[in-house]
Design a protein around this nucleic acid. Structure first.
Length: 537
RNA sequence: UGCGGGGUGGAGCAGUCUGGUAGCUCGCCGGGCUCAUAACCCGGAGGUCAUAGGUUCAAAUCCUGUCCCCGCGACCA
């Protein structure tokens, strides 16, 4: 099903690096939030590919469940027709944002049904499942059972769902399959204890630990009241319930039980990261590791629950009328600036307030004034003083402040990126860009150009500035792929996407003398906040 | 009610775990430079770190109380 080319395996040196976004629910179109998670994952994907890793980046769609069936019926479609109509919205959004996922899993695909059936049959065989009746109440909307004590009552004194406030129905003794989640309470707590990085950031970890300490109930993993789902092989009248289905898409995406991808799952599992919004960490930090433990599989290294994007301190929602759509922002800022803004200006893991005004600020300060203008002025001087060719750096010119910073940069940048501290990584690169601007100022090449006596000095300054620009382009590439590719092109360097070892590539003096340098149009023309039509608000 | 996050110069944040010159980006004011996208560089103004107590030689940072804001609860990471 997936049209995305998978990377060749086994040819890179550092090993595999695998991670996921959530398998998004088909009911809503992609919005800033889903785009945020996905851009973050893509930034990791692009970086780790440049960092000599064999990357697997799994995303996809959760297409099962009663709600989907209902929405489809309401729109006069079969459930699958409805899902088919939603899929392009996601794929197109990701294409527009330059997302380089390696697999896009739809939970309705046969290969995923195979995963679900194999996985749960295995747990069934191992004795982790039992059939039981759920006493109590059921909310169709949440697809969840509630004990009477957990319910709330509305004005009419009718029991309603504590989550969605809709009336609930009596469970009527429907039999479900249950997963013995309660057996994993201690094992999970021990695991959390021994693996402090499993849940990040730390506040999320504390939440989960206290939640598990509060006690775990067995988990209903099947439904027999509707059939829009994957049937369980040991009881065909039952389909896997939402999380018992969707979480497994992560392993479908790396070839679990896939005869066409022999050996890939073993190579890529366990993964480094699941990137999720903070609202769904429970499923990823409690149910999922318990499922894996039961299956005898290792557990993903880290579940990272990032924060929400807030506007004016409030969460975006349609009813508040403060929703921004990715496409609207791309129109104004372009894809690269869009990606850069969210990665650099919002601390990953914390809620972040965003605004159009702030986007314009960051765009102008970091991209137009610092990075874009730096390229502009240095390229222009290269053109003016060296006929548009990279000058030969004179002997001894490698002793300079830019090299000093650059030599330390990989370690700092890599540490940030490995910890998914995107804003830290971006700031580190930005610091070098700022230093180059200062270096140019201090060296004043326009004065050096006035006399033959300072010709060597001039060549050194321009070379060093160009070299720093090359290095900055490399480090910016995971955030802003198109711009970095453009800078590489203007320096007559090869395809930046082919860079497979960024540490080696960013070693000083990698820029060949004599390369043609094209000044080109400004990379990021300044924006005037008052002159922009955002088409929203 | 509950659970969670937060209140730091005009705006957005860092610093709080491991007490000891209050830092960053933007904006504002003044100066410099001229290669560049009114950009770049330097300097400056501006904060009783929500509030009231407590601990301490010393608290934004630790403890206690209070006030306020936000999130989960509605499509939604």
């Amino acid at each position: 099903m997936s049209s995305v080319a998978r990377p060749e395996r086994g040819i890179m040196s550092k090993g595999t690096y695998s991670f996921t976004t959530p398998i998004y629910y088909v009911n809503a179109s992609p919005h800033l939030g889903t785009a945020y998670t996905t851009i973050a994952a893509d930034t990791v994907a692009r970086y780790q590919r440049m960092n000599d890793y064999d990357v697997a980046f799994v995303t996809g769609l959760d297409e099962h469940g009663q709600k989907v069936a209902e929405v489809a019926a309401k729109n006069g479609m079969t459930p699958l027709e409805w899902c088919d109509s939603m899929e392009p919205k996601f794929r197109d959004a990701w294409t527009e944002l330059d997302i380089t996922y390696t697999d896009f899993v739809r939970t309705t695909e046969p290969r995923h049904a195979r995963t679900v059936q194999k996985f749960w049959t295995d747990l069934y065989d191992k004795g982790f499942l039992y059939k039981g009746a759920y006493e109590g109440w059921y909310c169709v909307h949440e697809e969840t059972y509630y004990a009477e004590g957990d319910l709330e009552k509305n004005e009419e004194d009718v029991f309603v769902c504590p989550d969605c406030k809709r009336p609930v129905q009596q469970a009527s003794g429907e039999e479900n399959w249950f997963f013995k989640l309660s057996e994993f309470e201690d094992k999970l707590l021990t695991y959390f204890d021994e693996n402090p990085d499993f849940i990040r950031p730390e506040t999320r970890r504390n939440e989960i630990v206290s939640f598990v300490k509060g006690g775990l109930k067995d988990l209903s993993i099947s439904r027999s009241t509707f059939d829009w789902g994957v049937p369980l092989p040991f009881d065909e009248g039952h389909v896997a319930y939402v999380w018992a289905d969707a979480l497994l898409a992560y392993i479908t995406g790396i070839g679990y039980a896939d005869p066409e991808r022999e050996g890939e799952f073993e190579m890529r599992w366990p993964m480094q990261y699941h990137f999720v919004g903070k609202d769904i960490i429970r499923f990823h930090c409690v149910i999922w590791p318990a499922m894996l433990m039961a299956a005898g599989l290792p557990i993903t290294h880290t579940v990272f629950g990032h924060g929400f994007l807030l506007t004016k301190g409030e969460k975006m929602s349609k009813s508040k009328g403060n929703v921004l759509l990715p496409a609207d922002l791309i129109k104004v800022f372009g894809v690269d600036a869009y990606r850069y803004y969210f990665m650099s200006d919002v601390a990953f893991g914390h809620d972040g307030s965003i605004s159009l005004e702030r986007m314009v600020q960051v765009y102008n300060a970091d991209l137009a004034n610092t990075w874009g203008n730096l390229c502009s002025r240095v390229f222009n001087m290269t053109n003016k003083y060296f006929d548009g060719k990279v000058p030969q750096a004179p002997a001894g010119s490698s002793e300079n402040p830019l090299k000093e910073i650059s030599d330390e940069l990989y370690a700092e940048y890599d540490a940030c990126m490995s910890q998914v501290d995107f804003s830290g990584a971006a700031a580190a690169v930005q610091k070098l860009a700022g230093r180059v601007n200062l270096y140019v100022e201090e060296s004043a090449p326009w004065n050096l150009a006035k006399s033959e006596e300072t010709a060597d000095e001039l060549a050194a300054v321009i070379y060093n500035a160009l070299e720093a620009i090359r290095i900055i382009a490399l480090y910016m590439a995971p955030f802003m792929p198109s711009t970095s590719a453009e800078v590489y092109k203007r320096l007559s360097l090869g395809d930046i996407v082919a860079v497979a070892d960024i540490e080696a590539a960013t070693a000083w003096a990698g820029l060949p003398a004599g390369n043609a340098v094209e000044t080109g149009d400004p990379l990021f023309p300044r924006l005037d906040v008052d002159a922009i039509d955002f088409g929203v608000e």
